[in-house]
Simulated scan of single mutants.
Amino acid sequence: MVVAVIADMVGSRRLPDRAAAQRVLDEAIDRVESARPLAIERLTPTVGDEQQGVYQDLGAALTSLMMVQLALPDGVGIRFGLGIGDVRSFDSSGGRLSDGPGWWAARAAIELVNERERGAIPSTRAWIVGGQGQDEVMPATISAANAYLLLRDELIGAMSDRERRLTYGRLMGSSQTELAAQEGITQPAVSKALRRSGANALLLGLDELTGAH
């Protein structure tokens, strides 16, 4: 059992320079994978604006995907559908293919993200669906993680570029003093930005979900 992820770019058809946005996304994924390689199969472009990747567990997926969100600048957003379940690979005349309940659940999850984004919760960027029995095996975990994702996406969506950089830095273990030097501001200004943006709650919530205490 792993976590399969299907991702796509927010509003890709409306972007003034789709190729430039894709380069920004690719660079963000490269940065995250270089800094903390948590993926079994890193997010890789497939068709159109879609990316697919595989993670060993929910904690690794939640951490890595949040890092990608935080690494993106204003104007470039990404949605994630996470499917918990088995995946299998096999050879075909067109090359190596991957299939299985994890992928089917990921597809259902990203469709739910699109539905919620177009509806009452436009900040929605990620959702988790359990594949073939996983909703029964770990319902509390999936429900708690989805509740966290709703609030996480709301907070990240309201952050400025600087607030996302600071949150990313804290997630990577940088001190407030180090971040202040990088941003050219004071340490108290960093502390205030982290409190005001909800970054501290965001990071503590991730620790609670992933057991990173």
Rank of each mutant, 00 (worst) to 15 (best):
D26A: 12
S34R: 15
E154M: 14
A39K: 06
I121T: 14
V190A: 07
S92C: 08
V137S: 01
S123V: 14
L150S: 15
R14N: 12
R79G: 07
M66K: 03
V137C: 06
Q187R: 08
L206K: 02
I40S: 09
S197P: 11
F90A: 15
P37S: 12
V76H: 09
N114T: 08
G133E: 01
N200G: 03
A108T: 11
F80V: 05
A28R: 07
L25I: 15
G75E: 08
R88G: 11
V32S: 08
E208S: 04
S34P: 04
E27N: 11
S92K: 02
A35H: 09
L97K: 06
I29M: 11
V10R: 14
G94K: 06
E41W: 03
S174T: 05
Q52V: 06
P73I: 09
Q51D: 01
I156K: 08
S89Q: 09
I110F: 05
S160L: 02
G85L: 02
M66V: 09
E208N: 08
V32D: 07
R152V: 09
V137H: 06
L112I: 13
R164F: 03
D86M: 07
G211L: 09
A199Q: 04
A28D: 12
V87L: 03
Q22I: 10
D207S: 13
G184R: 13
W127E: 09
Y168E: 07
E27I: 00
E50W: 00
V3W: 02
Q52F: 03
L166K: 13
A212L: 09
Q22V: 13
P101S: 01
F90W: 04
E41K: 02
D91T: 01
A158K: 15
L65G: 00
R107K: 04
V87Q: 02
G130M: 01
L43H: 00
G157S: 13
V24C: 07
A158M: 12
M138A: 08
A108Q: 10
V68T: 05
